[in-house]
Design a protein around this nucleic acid. Structure first.
Lengths: 211, 211
DNA sequence: TAGATTGTTAATCGATTAACAATC
DNA sequence: TAGATTGTTAATCGATTAACAATC
């Protein structure tokens, strides 16, 4: 018997809680926070914050609030950020390299163990100490090294075949940046960042402010 | 008297409708589509699709369906994609360059007229025919050239001050890639792409499939 | 203890889905 | 006309907010 399904809305708020708690801890050097204080800071109602957190457990202390360090640890655990993820990046253009650098910069648990491209000028070179291999080797590499996350930074036309190779290789999740809705085994987690959709939402908002 | 406020949920679905309609038109060479066909394709209910579209007007033909070309034109208009946006990109690292290339590749209406960075090695060079200027000139450039969109590709620490310069210069919208919730005049549209949040949602999903 | 703040139940609100009349 | 499919109203569902008892 599985737990009740967590709504997507909550999943999207969790990383944001994490971000604010981290900020409070580091910049403000606070050790405790109440749902009311978080509410003011983040723009959610205090009620929603308590509801969200209570979906996963009783992390607060009545009459006191939440111990930031403790709550952060719980959220990290909920998000699965207390483990390491072997990761490969497919497509080493600017976006692929941005992601590579990014995961280094904010490093927690994402270990890039392979880079892949089709461009013969790039294949064989080394980026941040990781060798760039040909995409033809992707599936076997994923299988042999038990890669958990595959990041797709190739163009729309090649995204689905890359996804297929990743899934066949056995990844548990795909982080997709190609502007296409991939069709993959639903046992594999899929998170797509549709930059064009995001940009078009922005233009909509620009043209519809204050109405 | 303004129109009824459009819910965020609908705004997020609009670009996706656009993507699928474009696909039907180009790849499948279809000219018409019904809400039922779109439903099967996109995974929304036919009812929701009709509700969504009717928020903006009566674009369909009873007993027939939707003329794809016509509907696409309407959606482009709703999203504000029937005009051009003078755009600047601040931060010319890999991410900034990826965005620059990206807007060239899928070009419709986003004209990059300025690039900005702080790194003296980059300032003065030219990327895709656009000169890279020092961030110190950002505000005046935005004002003089009536820039509409500012894209923030700098790190967390500098994002707020860049946003301030953009807003003071008079941009109408900000597309933010720094992992921080910017505090800006609410008359300016803000769309943030929080890559870390997206990645953390993925790890959550990886650890909670099928429960 | 009194005051504060959580955890949780109940009420409200908004978004999605179903149903069907309008009409091409 | 009959069949199909939209536009729109009504019903349902789920998420958010309010209220308050539990308790530190």
């Amino acid at each position: 018997m599985g737990k009740a399904k967590i709504s997507n809305a909550i999943i999207r708020r969790l990383p944001r809680y994490r971000r604010y708690l981290g900020h409070l801890q580091q910049t403000k050097e606070l050790t405790k926070v109440s749902s009311n204080e978080l509410s003011e800071l983040m723009g959610y109602t205090a009620s929603q914050i308590r509801q969200d957190l209570n979906t996963f457990g009783k992390f607060g202390h009545q009459g006191y609030g939440y111990e930031i360090k403790e709550l952060l640890k719980e959220i990290n655990s909920i998000l699965g950020l207390d483990r390491e993820y072997k990761t490969v990046i497919v497509g080493c253009g600017h976006l692929g390299q941005a992601i590579t650098n990014y995961t280094y910069y904010y490093k927690i648990g994402f270990k890039i163990i392979g880079l892949f491209d089709v461009n013969p000028d790039i294949v064989g070179t080394t980026i941040n100490g990781v060798k760039v291999s040909n995409v033809s080797e992707l599936k076997d590499f994923v299988k042999e090294n038990e890669v958990v996350i595959g990041v797709i930074c190739v163009n729309r036309e090649n995204a689905q075949s890359v996804a297929d190779a990743l899934v066949e290789g056995g990844v548990k999740g795909i982080w997709n940046f190609a502007p296409i809705d991939l069709d993959i085994d639903k046992k594999v987690a899929l998170e797509s960042v549709h930059l064009s959709d995001s940009l078009h939402a922005l233009t909509f908002m620009i043209n519809n402010m204050d109405e």
